[in-house]
Amino acid sequence: MTRYLDARGLLSAPADHRHVERVLREDGWTPCGAGDWAVALRSPDGTTAARISPFDPTGPFTAALYVRAAHTRQVPELLAHRRLTGGGDLQVLEWLAPVPDGEALALQHALAAPSRELAELAAIVRDLHEQARRELPWCGPLDHNPANVMRAADGRLVVLDLFYADGPDLYATAESDPDRVAALIPETERRFMTEIPLATSGPWDPASRERVRAGLAAADARRAASGAPGS
């Protein structure tokens, strides 16, 4: 998989979320889901999924979880990960199937008060989440959505997408105080902030979306004019 992605220029060459989705679709990958932060495409052979986000500050922490906890077999197999131009995120994972809510919630509850079987995973999750809360200005609490528990092809249950940015607060601040967002998140890491799908909690009012985009652009211009660091 990494050889294919590299050959298509998706692992090292400059690319944003639009380019990645376009290339994969041209190669026969098909839409298989969408959430607030990302869309998912399934590979032609059905064994792999690509999660493509225009803007996801927590993406590196999620990828780190999959790498650090890989030996537990309680997280998805991460086949590739890269940050995309403008603050987007690409994760290529083994194909996963949904599970009933009751089964998913039971695992989420077990992870919150872990047995010996889940203790190592819980410790890794806690460590990475604490790091994310220190380093990211709008990192939210752990996401206990039952949709974040899925089943791999070999039958094991895995947890995914536990980390997320506090979208309601972040986007409300971007509209009411764009200078604060511009000061805390570099433009290079939020260029496509207004292009997240919001498939779950949306739709996003087009006028509000444009106010956020215009407000951030004006804030960036003010920072550049003042010579602020990172502008």
Rank of each mutant, 00 (worst) to 15 (best):
M1S: 13
G9C: 05
L10H: 07
S12P: 00
A13N: 02
P14L: 04
D16N: 07
H17I: 02
H17S: 10
V23I: 14
L24T: 09
E26H: 13
E26Q: 15
D27C: 12
G28M: 04
W29M: 06
T30E: 11
P31V: 07
C32M: 03
G33T: 07
A34P: 02
G35H: 05
W37P: 00
A40K: 11
L41A: 03
L41H: 01
S43G: 04
S43P: 13
T47D: 10
T48I: 14
A49Y: 06
A50Y: 06
A50E: 07
R51D: 08
R51H: 11
R51T: 12
R51E: 11
I52Y: 00
S53T: 09
P54C: 08
T58G: 05
T58W: 01
G59I: 07
F61C: 00
T62C: 15
A63W: 03
A63L: 05
L65K: 05
L65Y: 01
Y66S: 10
V67D: 13
A69Y: 08
H71A: 15
R73D: 06
R73H: 08
Q74F: 01
P76Q: 08
R82A: 09
R83W: 02
L84V: 13
G88K: 01
V92P: 02
L93E: 05
L96M: 15
A97S: 14
A97V: 06
V99Q: 00
P100C: 14
D101H: 11
G102V: 05
E103S: 08
A110G: 06
A113P: 04
A113M: 04
P114G: 03
S115P: 06
L118W: 06
L118F: 09
A122E: 06
V125R: 03
V125A: 09
R126W: 02
D127C: 06
D127K: 15
H129P: 03
H129W: 14
Q131A: 15
R133A: 15
R133W: 05
R134P: 03
R134L: 15
R134T: 11
E135M: 11
P137M: 05
W138E: 02
C139L: 01
G140I: 09
G140D: 15
L142E: 03
D143W: 01
N145S: 09
V149Y: 10
V149P: 04
M150Y: 03
G155R: 01
R156K: 12
L160Y: 07
L160V: 01
A165M: 13
D166H: 12
G167R: 14
P168Q: 04
D169N: 11
L170N: 08
Y171G: 03
A174G: 15
V181K: 08
V181Y: 01
V181R: 09
A182P: 08
A183V: 08
L184V: 06
L184M: 07
I185Y: 07
I185M: 12
I185H: 09
E187K: 10
T188F: 00
E189T: 03
R190C: 04
E195S: 09
E195T: 04
T200R: 11
T200V: 14
S201D: 12
S201W: 06
G202V: 10
P203G: 13
D205W: 11
D205T: 04
P206W: 08
A207H: 12
S208W: 02
R211W: 12
R213I: 01
R213E: 12
A221D: 11
R223P: 06
R223T: 00
A225V: 04
A225E: 06
S226E: 13
P229C: 04
S231Q: 11
S231W: 12
